[in-house]
């Protein structure tokens, strides 16, 4: 143990882990965006989201990282997989990409990135004067049920409405087939 510690500096290890996590994130994102096979996209998304969960660990909140894995990877991605059956059968040939469209999309994406990067680098970020260092899940839960109670209720309501809405929308289409 001691030898390993002396061999590999802890912060080096942490840095290597960080690079891996970032690489996972972007690799997943690229896979999620570029291939035309929808299954690959979803798998890429899962990878990317896992990377983001790692980033959350580096940002000091293992709890949120777990939540990320649980909700995003565990729930949302799985529900998207269900939608795959609506997509074009895999054995048929893919339609060709239209290059002008991809070009324009890339242009706009780059423009947005330039804008964001510009804004990020030109803003002088000032930390708050006094900063508490209480990261515990206990406090989180406490806040959720006291100060952010209303927001909590609101998000619950939003989820409820979303569920009902989803049922209504798909049910409506069933009653009126084209």
């Amino acid at each position: 143990m001691n030898s390993v510690q002396s061999l590999i500096q802890p912060h080096l290890l942490a840095q290597a882990g960080f690079v891996v996590v970032v690489a996972l994130t972007f690799a997943g994102a690229l896979i999620a965006v570029f291939p035309r096979n929808i299954l690959y996209n979803i798998l890429g998304l899962i990878v990317s989201l896992t990377g983001v969960a790692g980033l959350f660990v580096y940002l000091g909140s293992p709890f949120i990282a777990l939540m990320q894995l649980l909700i995003y990877v565990g729930a949302i991605c799985i529900s998207i997989i269900f939608a795959i059956m609506l997509s074009r059968p895999l054995h048929l040939s893919m339609p060709k990409r239209r290059l002008p469209k991809v070009g324009i999309a890339a242009g706009v994406g780059v423009a947005v990135f330039v804008m964001l990067a510009g804004i990020i680098s030109r803003t002088s970020w000032q930390p708050a004067a006094s900063r508490s260092s209480d990261w515990s899940v206990t406090t989180l839960g406490h806040y959720l049920l006291t100060r952010y109670d209303l927001v909590f209720e609101a998000i619950s309501l939003v989820l409820l409405v979303a569920i009902l809405g989803a049922i209504v929308i798909s049910g409506y289409a069933r009653r009126r087939p084209s």
């Binding site: 469209k101 324009i104 999309a105 242009g107 706009v108 423009a111 947005v112 330039v114 804008m115 510009g118 804004i119 030109r122």
Partner: peptide, 21 residues
């Protein structure tokens, strides 16, 4: 739909560029 979105974001980016730089 996507062209509409693209125009929106392009305009957003240009406006931001105009105001911030």
């Amino acid at each position: 739909l996507q062209y509409n979105l693209m125009v929106m974001f392009a305009v957003l980016a240009l406006v931001a560029l105009y105001f911030f730089f």
